[in-house]
Amino acid sequence: MNAYLDLQKIGIVFPTARGPFRALQDINLQVAQGEFISLIGHSGCGKSTVLNIVAGLLDATEGYALLKGKEVKGPGPDRAVVFQNHSLLPWLTVYENVQLAVDKVMPGKNRAERRDWVMHNLRLVHMDHAADKRPGEISGGMKQRVGIARALAMQPDVLLMDEPFGALDALTRAHLQDSVMEIQAELGNTVMMITHDVDEAVLLSDRIVMMTNGPAATIGAILGVDLPRPRDRLALAHDPAYHALRSQVLDFLYNRQARPREAA
């Protein structure tokens, strides 16, 4: 099978003071182009480690990740990351933060084209009005929008999101989830998102990858979400199919992979 993104028998062992620690084992996952995948699991299960391996920020001890048939080696803008805590550079304006990525990824385009592309991506996340503000002057949700714009501006093959809405309040989070769904419907990005929010996973994903608890965490089950798109959170609240999917994820997390005591 020739998947767009293909994780083959990935495992990772970290050296620690108390000897080697196996965080991941035998991760196999095939992602199709344009698919929205969520990785869900209890904290400490290594879901962020999977994402960092795909991003190239960590090297797998075993196995490998293939993107469009090529092995992933080191980080690169073809796998743009939206970090949990936005990671905007505080000395640059919103515009300059996105511009940094655009200048790097599109050196062939002229100045006006690059400017248009920066503004286009800021418009996608509804942040063009704050282009000249600094990160310290905008709210947490706005920062995360800019982080998403920066990642989108790289036109990545895969968009990696590491608990992108984890630090936001419920209402802001809902707004951003809607924005991400809109953007994904428009651009057809392939997305891999880490989350610990069951509703978020069901609402956004085509498939939910549920991970077992570490050490030696692996994929416990994969749940296909066949809810029709576009999805509306209010309508879904009364949809039995939505609730059935939600219960399946909850059942996996709380019955089959009971929360480890120390993470409570």
Partner: peptide
């Protein structure tokens, strides 16, 4: 985080 941004941007 800043170093990760730099790494992703190569």
């Amino acid at each position: 985080d800043y170093m990760n941004v730099a790494a992703v941007l190569k």
